[in-house]
């Protein structure tokens, strides 16, 4: 399979793609409504049971690692250098001070990335691309647009294979791919020019094929895969609406009295991301080392 879709049997998988798209929208909206680090952290933790329910915990953790890189970067750099900060929280070696206001700002931003990332990963991993396309068509999105989305998944591995062929062919014609960095950048031209031409030719041919498969025919189109909004979807949508109402209520009436964000929370979440990041680096180094000494696998 070329997409990130994980075929599993779960409640989340059986939801209609449209429900899940609305879910992503809901999460994005929520992440902006709840612009407070503590609430966002709670929201992030609250999303996790959904990931468990969808049975995609391991692939989720793998893909969220990359977003964590952003989070570490934002929290560290903004925490120290963002000019909005005035109240010092703590100091690390070299006299670099983390300030309260900038840490709040950085945490909100990075948690927002994580929250939206979680929702997006959840959507992509539990929705079959064809279902997404047919759901879009049901939302009156033009058929050709849905097809473009879908065929992207298909054309990426084909282009990757063509790229390999072009590279090998150019190497056979004495193209130096192991030279200096400048040389390699220069060599991108003889790599990409043929690749673009090949891709355009392929797409051109595909357009003929589509024409021969009645793609531009007017009238009703049908789809093999069925997407239907059922009671489960309605329950889910109602839940989301309820939650949204609660968020707005919280935002409008409770923000004054509710003050969960503290120095400790900010510091610990910063340390938390550092520790996880440290683990990632250790894992990476160990893997590299294993590769060098020709260890297992």
């Amino acid at each position: 399979m070329n997409s990130l879709y994980m075929p599993k049997d779960s409640l989340i998988h059986s939801l209609d793609p449209r429900t899940k798209m609305l879910f992503v929208v809901f999460v994005v909206a929520s992440s902006f409504i709840l612009n407070d680090p503590a609430l966002q952290l709670v929201f992030l933790v609250a999303l996790f049971p959904l990931v468990v329910m969808a049975k995609v915990v391991k692939p989720y953790l793998i893909s969220i690692q990359f977003l964590l890189l952003f989070a570490v970067l934002i929290m560290t750099v903004h925490g120290i250098y963002n000019p909005i900060g005035v109240t010092p929280v703590f100091e690390i070696f070299g006299g670099l001070t983390f300030k309260y206001e900038s840490m709040v700002y950085a945490s909100v931003m990075s948690f927002r990335i994580l929250v939206i990332g979680t929702a997006a990963v959840l959507f992509v991993m539990t929705t079959h691309p064809s279902d997404m396309a047919s759901a879009l068509v049901k939302w009156k999105v033009p058929h050709s647009f849905a097809f473009i989305l879908l065929s992207t998944f298909q054309i990426i591995p084909i282009i990757a294979r063509e790229a390999k062929i072009v590279m090998e062919a150019q190497q056979a014609r004495c193209l130096d791919v192991k030279g200096s960095l400048i040389q390699r950048v220069k060599n991108l031209v003889p790599m990409f020019a043929p690749l673009f031409i090949i891709t355009f030719m392929k797409v051109h041919q595909l357009s003929y094929v589509l024409e021969c498969r009645a793609f531009s025919r007017k009238g009703e189109k049908t789809s093999l895969r069925e997407t239907k909004i059922g009671s489960l979807d309605y329950t889910f949508l109602l839940g989301m609406l309820g939650f949204l109402a609660f968020e707005i209520y919280l935002k409008l009436f409770m923000m004054g009295s509710l003050q969960l964000t503290t120095d400790a929370l900010l510091t610990y979440s910063l340390f938390g991301t550092w520790i996880v990041f440290g683990f990632m680096i250790i894992k990476f180094v160990v893997k590299q080392f294993q590769g060098k000494i020709g260890g297992a696998n």
């Binding site: 399979m1 070329n2 997409s3 079959h128 691309p129 064809s130 097809f147 879908l150 065929s151 998944f153 298909q154 084909i158 392929k202 041919q205 595909l206 003929y208 094929v209 589509l210 498969r213 009645a214 793609f215 025919r217 009238g219 009703e220 189109k221 049908t222 789809s223 093999l224 895969r225 069925e226």
Partner: peptide, 29 residues
Amino acid sequence: VFQEPENQLSQMTIEEEVAFGMGNLGVPR
């Protein structure tokens, strides 16, 4: 049917590939 097999395929699975043309013709599921 064209010459290059790979250029003629656009769907994720084989059954969807076969169903694609029919879907455009509006054949019931």
